[in-house]
Structures are given as structure tokens and as C-alpha cells.
Design a protein around this nucleic acid. Structure first.
Length: 730
DNA sequence: GGCAATAGGCTTTTT
DNA sequence: GCCTATTGCC
């Protein structure tokens, strides 16, 4: 046995060892929060390779995020002592990879595009327009959600039409048919297709199925409770004769039912594999006893769950602190104060803290207060890098270059940067190309045969055609890195933003430069870099994947994003009815239980200390509402909760802040940052050469730059980058 | 066809 | 309070 493996193996508990060493065949592990399931999963893989001499390339492991996949890969390599070629990734990335090979058997080209939500919505909107479908008050978004639900439940457009009852369902049915055929015409998959198309291929094509059954002799699945029906069926297909399938999950942490995750999968597993060995891991290594007692008592209110007895060897620790505040601003202040307390008294670093909330919208007020306090922080989620307009524009070029049938991407960029090709022209091209059954890109080539377009516009179209064509011809001869750089250079997008001169444009340019370095990084890292490979990676990246967990910063994220992570101190905000549980779940027992699990996931992220916040009032779209405390608060065993009332507290504690500056030698980040910003804060009066006297209304930190917004006498708010602008502080 | 001003919607969670 | 999509004017 490998030495490193041997040494670390001895540290596992008896149950964990037993699971790692279990014989082949189907295995279901019910693993409570913090019980070391990732550990068991990695040891199992290492054991299969080291001891069972299984060829690593024949093992496939499904994780919930790419980040988790990366970490698992690293840990397995550490245990084995060398780099091995494992298939680890999310369901979506693994099957996207498979589709690169097998898409032709489903009638798609190998260079398919992957459409994200934004692309999907554009497609749906164009379908509604082109077919003059009257959608009444229904939004494209609600149509998309409905289509996605149908797809994940494996309801085909025809089956959907046959069962459509309401007016809404009839509209959706029409759009669904068009949507599916348009995707195929554009040679594009949406996220759901990455799961359902492989499923179709497997059921229709025995040869391909057997190829993958032979290839994957061992399948492991993490976070099994959050797989949906289609994913489960996919697994069932893939499991070959040896039936080596190993799934790990926790029904109490199932929080993606709204996305189609199906708790039945755990139950059906035992039905489909009656000889499955079932293990339970109930010892929690993460949390103190008080935290665990809080979590256990809460989740025991759920009716549809498996009984379990999660226990901890750790000390009782501190009680869970519940803080009642007046409104969201005082909540944010209280959060900041508690973090400062912990930093000061318990010598904690910023990366020890996570602030969790139900909705992304809650982050803004928290962010404002933390920024003012001078502490460093990272927000996970919100507007993602790859969803920014300028990034999507460049990516649309790349998509069109790899897949010229991608009409959605073409429409996005044919007039970006502006080339004088407008809506009307585009309509004519689209009509012509659909009457000829050609892609829009193909019809550009023959633009001269379309009447009714002026010659000058035709020339512009042709030069756009030649631009893209040039890169299509280049793409197999030069590296993706060179191609993207050359392209960005040729369309002089950076220059355009530079000339625009506004802060927004500068940011956009900076984002594009970051994209360029991402391509270089990809080219360096990948063994066989290709444009489609880069696009695929980019399309499937998630918020949490790009979260830098080594930075010394407080992390702000949604409860959903926090799944699978742990922090010494967790602060959960917004414990109010209609927020947690969210309003839409009120009438539905099942959804209510999911909200409870969401809170449970939040609690069980904490190692040492939990703070809970509930506010009497909270504004929603500028409209202040009174709120009731969350019903979940009373479901926590009262003995482990300590309540603090902050309702009449004056939170301006200057003296306290002053002390903090002296205390933090162990936080160089903190010190630098505080000093950097200490002279200008919101409310400071400043004098600007050109605009005169004004007052700072906002300070924003973006990367290394600090942006400040100043309101001048004429009530105009102007934004500046602090290091470029000279102000006199008044 | 381009641009600036304005209206409207958003806020549940995400691969 | 912010972002986007639309509108109406040039």
C-alpha cells in the first residue's frame, strides 16, 4: 500500500474505513453534514486505484461544482502519489465532454454551442416575435422555466402538447416545439440538453451505450440528493454489468428541488439496486455540540426525512446567538460589530467568516456597511464575470467562429461594435435565410441575392462575413489564445471603450483584458487547447468555482452557494417570515420543508459559532414592510439559543473602531486597507477642480481600484476612480 | 439607423 | 435603486 494513503487511512474512523474498503457493487452512503463524505469519496477512489488496481481512466466521479471536482482531484492525487487521469466533474461538464464525441449520433455537430440562460431567453423572445405568438402577460422567463421543467421531467414537445390544459400551457407548447427545433438548427445545446440528449443517445443507440458502460467501470456520485430524474436515469444507463455505483448524499441537505432535484432518487436507489449496501455516517467532525443541537432540533420538524442521529465529539461550545434588530441597516451594522468583536476578542481572521442570506438582493446593504468598516470581503454570486455584457459579446464572436450555425450569437454581434447593420436589415436576412433553410451566417455570404437592401449595407455585411470567415479558417491553425487576442485587436474593442472614456467603459475594457488572460491561462493549462474547449469551460463555470477561498476576506453568499463549505463563524441574516422561509413557499408543505433544510445547511456550515439575525422591518423596492420573525427560530431548541435585543442600540461606536486599528497586527490586509480609505468616507465634503464642492455618496472597491461617487451642487452624481482624480478634502 | 431619455421590472435559489 | 429594453426623436 502507498505510504501516504496508509498513513492517512489510519486517521479515518471505523465506519469510514469500512465504507472505503467495501466490496464492489451498488453502495449508498447516507452522510450527515460534516461527517467527512468528501473524505470517504476521495479515499474510495484512491483505494480503487491503489489496491484494486483499477485503471483511473475508467473511474468517473460526479460532483456538484467544478471547484469541488478540482479539490477532489487534488486530494486523490495526493493519496495516490502521482497525477492520474480521472474523469471528475459536474454532470454537465462530464456529459458535455461526452457530447463532443457523440453529438453527431443525435443529429448535432461536434462544435455545438452551449446556450446559457441569457441566450435561451433571446431565442425564446425571437420565437415569440417571429411567430407572432401572443404571450399575453406571461414573461419569456416563465416560459423558459416551464420548458426547462418539461425537459428535466423528460416530457417531449409532443407529449407536452397532448397534456396541455391551460392557456399558458398551450402557449408554452407552441414555443417549446419551435425552441427545440431552433436549438437543433443553431447546433446548440442548453444546460438541460447536456443531460437529456446523452440520455436519448443511450436509449437509442446500444453501441454507444456499451462503449461508455465499458469505459466507466466505476461510478461515484457526490451530493446525490440533489440529482434530478434525468441525471438518475443517466446513471442507471451507465452502470454496467458489474454495477459498480457508489453514491453519497444527505436527504436533509436537499435544497435544489425547485431545479428538479428529486428526493425519490435516494428511495429508488434501494428499489433499483435491492442488493445495495447502505452505510450511514452520523458522526459530525465539524461543529460544536450546541450548533449541532440547534441544527438537529430544527430539522426534526421536517416530516419527510430519514431519521438520523447526528452527533459530535466536540465541546459544547458557545450558544447560538440570535440578534433582533430594527431594520436591514441595523442588521448590517450588527453583523459588522459581531465580526469585529470576534476578530478582536478571539483573534480571528476575515476568512473565518461567512455571511449567508436567502436572496442575492440582501447583499447590498451588508456590502455597504462592511465596506465602510474597512474590512475586506468577497461576494460570491450576483452578476457573474462571464455574464457581463462585454464578455458575452466577445464570447458570441467565439461561438460563431466555432459554430457558424449559431444564429443567436450572430445576431448579438453583427452590429457590435456598431457597423450600421440595424434591426430591419437583420429581419430581412433572417426571413431570407429561414426561407432557404440556411443559417444566417451562410446567407450573409450570398447577401447580394437578397433584394431590398442597399448596396452600402450589403458591403458592410460582406465585410463582417469576411471577418468571421477569416477566423473560421484560422481556428485550426493557430492556438485559441492567439486567435482571441488577434480578434479582440482587430475589432478594436478596447480602443472603443478607451475612447468612450467613462468609468463603465474602463471597467468593460478591464474585464475584456481579464478574459484575454483567462484564455492564456486556459491555453497554458490544457493539454489539447481548443476554442470549443475554452467555451465549454467558460459556459459551465459557476460562482463558487471562481471563489478564492484563500484570500483573507469575509465571504458573502447565498445559503444555496454555501452548500459543501465550512467556516469557523457563520452569520445568517434575514430570519424573517416571507424571506426565510421565502414567501412563495408558504402554502406548500414540501417547499416549506425545503426552506427549513436550507436553514439547516446554513447552520451546519459553522464550526465554532453561529449568529442569527432577524429584523422587524425590511425594505423591498423602496417600500418598507414590517416583518415577523421566522417560524424556524422557535424550532431551535431554546436551551442552545442566546437572545440579544439590538432594537434601541446606537451603533455608532467610534471608540470601538479606534481600538480595532491597534489590535490587528495579524491582519496586514486589514491594516493597509483601512489606512488607504480612512481619509475619505461616505459623507465627506470634497472640492473638485472642475465641478466644485460636492459630497461623497458612495465608495466602491473594484479590484485594485476604488471608485467614489460624488454629488455636486447641481445634484449630479459623478463617478471617479480615486487614484486618478485630485480632490481637496474639506 | 443611432442615440438619449424613459419606462418597467426586478428579487428565490443555479447547472 | 439598478439594469435593461423600448421608445421617440434626430
Amino acid at each position: 500500500m502507498n505510504k501516504e494513503f496508509e498513513r492517512q487511512f489510519q486517521e479515518l474512523n471505523q465506519k469510514q474505513k469500512e465504507i472505503v474498503l467495501a466490496d464492489g457493487g451498488p453502495i449508498l452512503v447516507i452522510a450527515g453534514a460534516g461527517s467527512g463524505k468528501t473524505k470517504v469519496l476521495t479515499f474510495r477512489i484512491a483505494y480503487l486505484v491503489n489496491e484494486k488496481k483499477l485503471d483511473p481512466s475508467r473511474i468517473v466521479a460526479m460532483t456538484f461544482t467544478n471547484k469541488a471536482a478540482g479539490e477532489m482531484k487534488e486530494r486523490v492525487n495526493g493519496l495516490i502519489g502521482k497525477m492520474i487521469n480521472l474523469w471528475i466533474g459536474t454532470f454537465h461538464s462530464i456529459f458535455a465532454r461526452m457530447l463532443r464525441q457523440e453529438a453527431p449520433s443525435a443529429g448535432y455537430g461536434k462544435d455545438f454551442s452551449i446556450y446559457d440562460t441569457d441566450d435561451q431567453l433571446r431565442l425564446i423572445k425571437s420565437i415569440i416575435e417571429n411567430n407572432k405568438i401572443s404571450v399575453d402577460q406571461y414573461s419569456a422567463k416563465s416560459v423558459l422555466d416551464e420548458i426547462s421543467r418539461a425537459k428535466n421531467n423528460l416530457v417531449s414537445p409532443d407529449a407536452y402538447r397532448d397534456s396541455a390544459r391551460s392557456y399558458f400551457e398551450e402557449i408554452v407548447s407552441k414555443i417549446y416545439h419551435e425552441y427545440v427545433s431552433n436549438l437543433q438548427k443553431n447546433n446548440a445545446f442548453d444546460f438541460d440538453d447536456l443531460i437529456t440528449v446523452p440520455l436519448r443517445i443511450f436509449s437509442a443507440n446500444k453501441e454507444i451505450l456499451e462503449k461508455y458502460q465499458n469505459r466507466f467501470r466505476y461510478i461515484l456520485v457526490d451530493e446525490f440528493q440533489d440529482t434530478n430524474r434525468a441525471q438518475y436515469l443517466l446513471l442507471r444507463y451507465l452502470v454496467g454489468e458489474e454495477r459498480n455505483i457508489f453514491v453519497v448524499g444527505d436527504d436533509d441537505q436537499s435544497i435544489y428541488r425547485w431545479r428538479g432535484a428529486d428526493i425519490r432518487n435516494i428511495l429508488d436507489f434501494e428499489k433499483d439496486f435491492p442488493d445495495a449496501k447502505i452505510f450511514r455516517m452520523e458522526q459530525n467532525y465539524r461543529s460544536t455540540q450546541n450548533i449541532l443541537a440547534a441544527a438537529n432540533s430544527l430539522v426534526s420538524y421536517n416530516r419527510s426525512r430519514r431519521e438520523k442521529n447526528l452527533w459530535s465529539n466536540r465541546e459544547p461550545g458557545e450558544k447560538v446567538t440570535l440578534i433582533e434588530v430594527e431594520n436591514e441597516r441595523s442588521e448590517a451594522k450588527a453583523v459588522v460589530e459581531k465580526i469585529k468583536d470576534e476578530v478582536f476578542k478571539n483573534k480571528r481572521s476575515f476568512q473565518d467568516f461567512a455571511i449567508l442570506y436567502r436572496t442575492n438582493a440582501q447583499s447590498r446593504v451588508l456590502e455597504d456597511q462592511i465596506r465602510q468598516s474597512g474590512m475586506s470581503y468577497i461576494i460570491v454570486g450576483g452578476l457573474r464575470f462571464y455574464e457581463r455584457k462585454e464578455i458575452k459579446d466577445i464570447l458570441a464572436y467565439l461561438k460563431l467562429i466555432t459554430n457558424s450555425r449559431d444564429d443567436i450569437s450572430l445576431k448579438r454581434i453583427i452590429n457590435f461594435p456598431q457597423r450600421g447593420i440595424g434591426q430591419r436589415t437583420l429581419e430581412k436576412v433572417q426571413n431570407w435565410s429561414s426561407s432557404k433553410g440556411m443559417s444566417m451566417f451562410e446567407s450573409l455570404r450570398d447577401i447580394n441575392s437578397i433584394s431590398d437592401i442597399s448596396q452600402s449595407i450589403k458591403d458592410k455585411i460582406l465585410s463582417f462575413y469576411k471577418l468571421i470567415k477569416k477566423y473560421i479558417d484560422l481556428k485550426d491553425t493557430i492556438s485559441p489564445n492567439e486567435l482571441v487576442h488577434a480578434l479582440v485587436d482587430e475589432i478594436s474593442i478596447l480602443k472603443m471603450y478607451k475612447e468612450e472614456g467613462t468609468i463603465e467603459a474602463q471597467e468593460r475594457a478591464a474585464n475584456i483584458r481579464e478574459l484575454l488572460s483567462a484564455v492564456s491561462e486556459y491555453a497554458r493549462r490544457s493539454e489539447t487547447p481548443s476554442l470549443s474547449g475554452f467555451l465549454e469551460e467558460v459556459s459551465l463555470i459557476t460562482d463558487i468555482d471562481s471563489w478564492d477561498d484563500r484570500a483573507n476576506a469575509i465571504t458573502l453568499m447565498t445559503l444555496h452557494s454555501a452548500k459543501g463549505l465550512e467556516f469557523p463563524v457563520v452569520l445568517i441574516t434575514g430570519l424573517e417570515e416571507d424571506l426565510l422561509p421565502i414567501a412563495q413557499s408558504r402554502e406548500d408543505q414540501g417547499r416549506l420543508e425545503e426552506e427549513r433544510r436550507l436553514f439547516y445547511v446554513g447552520l451546519t456550515r459553522a464550526k465554532d459559532k453561529v449568529y442569527l439575525f432577524t429584523s422587524q422591518r425590511r425594505s423591498l423596492f423602496e417600500d418598507v414592510r414590517s416583518r415577523l420573525p421566522s417560524r424556524f427560530i422557535d424550532e431551535i431548541e431554546p436551551e442552545v439559543v442566546q437572545r440579544i435585543n439590538y432594537l434601541h442600540k446606537n451603533n455608532r461606536q467610534k471608540s470601538h473602531e479606534k481600538r480595532l486599528y491597534d489590535c490587528c497586527d495579524h491582519h496586514p490586509d486589514y491594516e493597509n486597507f483601512s489606512q488607504e480609505e480612512s481619509d475619505v468616507t461616505v459623507g465627506t465634503w470634497v472640492f473638485h477642480q472642475k465641478y466644485g464642492k460636492g459630497r461623497v455618496v458612495k465608495i466602491n472597491r473594484v479590484g485594485k481600484e476604488i471608485k467614489i461617487s460624488v454629488k455636486f451642487g447641481d445634484n449630479d452624481i459623478r463617478k471617479f476612480i480615486a487614484s486618478y482624480t485630485k480632490f481637496t478634502i474639506l
